[in-house]
Nucleic acid binder design. Structure first.
Lengths: 150, 150
DNA sequence: TTCGATGCAAAGCCTTTGCATCCTG
DNA sequence: CAGGATGCAAAGGCTTTGCATCGAA
């Protein structure tokens, strides 16, 4: 389990693709590599800006696009509003809050894997090659539940 | 199976909620009631505008919001870009094209129902009441597949 | 030194909002 | 007739783009 960190892998992959490792890209990669909160570009920018006053939106998007193209990060549009970025490249499901759009990773255990991987065939049209099958669990997060109760 | 049409049901529900049945609302309802292509507000507007020159975006959104609030229509944000509206209120899954964002309904058969309804519990956190569980099948539609091949 | 990357600002989509006017009930 | 609904236009979020400047390799 003690392999290279996620951020090391990401930076190595970007370099392998011939992309320059600018300080801005390194900063974005460090910020998102181990973040399982599915941040938006806006959120990443707001976290980075204080430490790097010249950081711009365009660069955040540029770096995220590079990571997505490299298959190191997945853009998620599971709820209205800004695209969220997910550094977890292992297959997994998501719980999404109807109220605030919060996205929670749901690991796939053996039982789930059986269900979701094999559930694919039914009714998917001919000529539609399947890349992934995910489950989306919609409901309310604890915070929104509490807010609604008041 | 010969119940009232979907559009009749929608209009009756809107009236029941005390909303006025303006010609604009009737037009939007007629346009979306039996449309399984998951149109965007923009698309609905572009279809209606030629026949109803004064139709405005605000009214399309207004009517769609009313239908959503009434539970007669579901907004879907399964791919980047505009929200798509789904008049199919029965539980079902979706196939989504990575290339163009096309959304195809996948009916739930008995076997699927068993899988998806029961698949819920695993790893969903405490205090997260579940409203729905859907499957999202991602891949490529026939048109995008053909376009890529060239 | 070179060519790609950055920062800035403007433009582009999608959606919401404010307000005067209109029209259903 | 009254109050809700409409149309228009402007504003508001999110994202992309263009271009002059900068800096990693």
């Amino acid at each position: 389990m003690a392999g290279p960190s996620k951020q090391t892998v990401m930076l190595a992959e970007l370099r392998k693709l011939g992309l320059k490792l600018t300080s801005q890209r390194v900063a974005v990669v460090r910020e998102i590599a181990d973040d399982c909160s599915h941040p938006t570009a806006q959120e990443l920018f707001e976290r980075l800006q204080p430490h790097m006053p010249t950081m711009s939106f365009a660069t955040v998007y540029n770096t995220l696009d590079a990571l997505v193209s490299a298959g190191l990060c997945t853009p998620r549009t599971l709820s209205p509003g800004a695209t969220r970025f997910d550094p977890n490249t292992a297959p997994h499901h998501h719980a999404v809050c109807d109220g605030c759009g919060l996205v929670i990773d749901l690991p796939i255990d053996k039982t789930d894997a059986d269900r979701s991987s094999r559930a694919r065939p039914a009714h998917v049209p001919q000529g539609f090659p399947v890349r992934t099958v995910e489950q989306v669990v919609r409901g309310s997060c604890a915070a929104c539940l509490a807010a609604k109760a008041q």
